[in-house]
Structures are given as C-alpha cells and as structure tokens.
C-alpha cells in the first residue's frame, strides 16, 4: 500500500514536470532587424518572431520566446535552455553536425545594386570590366569570384564600407543580401540606386536559407515544426507575414 502511494507520488511529480515543460521555449537573437529585434517597449518583434508565433498557433502549443546572444545560441539549445531557435540562422553543413534543421523558412538571396539607369547586370557580358564590391569572406564574395570572374572584385570589411564606395562612384555595383540592401535603398540619400535584375537563389553559392534549429534529441518537435511550417506556407499565413515586412517574396519552396 505504502509503495503504491509512493509510486503515485513519483508519477505525479513526473507528470508535473512534464506539464511545467509544456510551453515550447523558442530562442531568437533580438538584434537583427527586421528579422528579430527588441522594440521600444522591450518586446521581441520581427519576421522571425512572427513566424515563431504563427507556428505555435498552428501547432496549438503555448510558446515562450526569449532573446539570446548569437554566439551562445547553439550551445544553449544543446544544453536544453530552450527547445528551438528561430533566429534567421542559415543552414550550413557545420551547424547540421550540431543540431537538426527544419526545411528552410526563408531565403533572402543575393542581389546586385547599382546606380539608377546604369546598364549592369549579373551577366558575364555586362560585368566585363566593371568593378563590383562585396564583403570579404561572405557567400557573395564566393559567388562573384566563381561565377563572374569577368568583373573586378573588391573586398570590403563591412557592407557599410562597400555601400560608401558605391555612393562615391568607385564601384559600379555591389552584391549583398537582398533584404539588407532593400532597407539600405529605403534610407535617405540612397535614392539614386536600384536593384539590378533578379536575386540569386542558387543553393550552391548562397546556401539553403534560414532554418529552425532543434536539438538532435528532440525529433518529435522537429517534425511538428516542419508540419506546421508546411501548413502556414500552404494556408496563406506565411505570405501575409512576408508582405507585412517585405515587398518581395522570400519564401523558399
């Protein structure tokens, strides 16, 4: 009899723990606008945050979204501080060794930006003799070097610096992430420039896109997230969120 009570108590405490762990804890960075950032009232906002909320609604789960420093993001996931990462994390082979990823939920792509009216495009003939700026050690630098060796490529330490040289006419164009450059074009004083042609979405150069990371010990959650992601892509929720933030589609089909 006594044993039975003990067993019941043990069971209750296990159940209690399970109930406590119920809200799915999702980490984001909060320092990468417009994807994730903290607004004036201290609340997490952005495309990533909205996607996370939409997924939770779709899964009918309670979620808690927390902000976390970027460099400790994956270690924190593996230590069980949270269950998933929705933080514009690019899917790479190296990260796949450490965590599991859902299918990519967006791919911003690379875009060429140049002065309005100039005849320049990501096309070997039109790049011949042109000077293109890219950030050192980025996928955009690899793309230019491997696919468009006709262009003269200049390597910069930051995106801001190559944009300065674009404005001072040292460069005929820059290749960078589409969303970032879209925001730059919206800023005051940058209205003399425009997107040139379609974005590059070639996986060989710019990768698969951003995915949601889940610890390898939790395949159930990965599956639930993948199902929910497929559902919001299907039912229009995704497109609605996409157009709330960007005038072009960044969905990855």
């Amino acid at each position: 009899m006594k044993l039975k009570i003990l067993a019941a108590a043990a069971l209750a405490s296990v159940l209690g723990q399970a109930a406590q762990a119920d809200p799915i804890r999702i980490a984001t960075e909060g320092a990468y606008p417009p994807f994730n950032y903290v607004d004036e009232s201290g609340e997490l906002k952005g495309f990533d945050v909205d996607i996370a909320k939409a997924l939770c609604e779709e899964m009918d789960a309670e979620c808690e979204i927390i902000s976390q420093a970027w460099d400790g993001m994956i270690p924190g996931l593996r230590a069980g501080k949270y269950d998933a990462i929705v933080a514009s994390m690019s899917i790479t082979e190296k990260r796949k060794n450490a965590v599991n990823f859902t299918r990519p939920y967006y791919q911003a792509g690379a875009i060429l930006v140049g002065p309005e009216g100039s005849d320049i495009a990501l096309d070997p003939e039109k790049l011949n003799g042109k000077t293109i700026g890219v950030q050192r050690a980025t996928t955009y630098a690899n793309l230019m070097r491997e696919k468009y060796p006709e262009a003269e490529i200049k390597l910069y330490d930051t995106v801001e610096n190559h944009n300065l040289d674009l404005k001072s006419e040292r460069l005929d164009g820059v290749v960078a992430q589409r969303v970032f450059m879209h925001n730059w074009l919206e800023e005051e004083g940058n209205d003399g420039f425009e997107f040139k042609g379609d974005p590059v979405l070639d996986e060989d150069y710019i990768g698969e896109g951003a995915g949601i990371a889940v610890d390898k010990s939790n395949p159930e959650l990965l599956e639930r997230l993948d199902t929910a992601l497929a559902a919001i892509l299907e039912n229009g929720t995704y497109d609605e969120l996409n157009s709330k933030y960007f005038p072009f589609s960044i969905r990855k089909d």
Binding site: R136, A137, A141, N142, K154, L155, Y156, D157, D165
Partner: peptide, 18 residues
C-alpha cells in the same frame, strides 16, 4: 588591406576566410 588593397595582409585575410 582595410581599403580593399591586396597586400600581404589583404591576401592572408581573404585566404583565411576562404
């Protein structure tokens, strides 16, 4: 190397990143 020149350091930084 900070102003896009490919001097010894510029080359080394690029190679290190690649």
């Amino acid at each position: 190397s900070t102003v896009t020149l490919m001097d010894i350091t510029g080359v080394a930084r690029t190679l290190a990143a690649e």
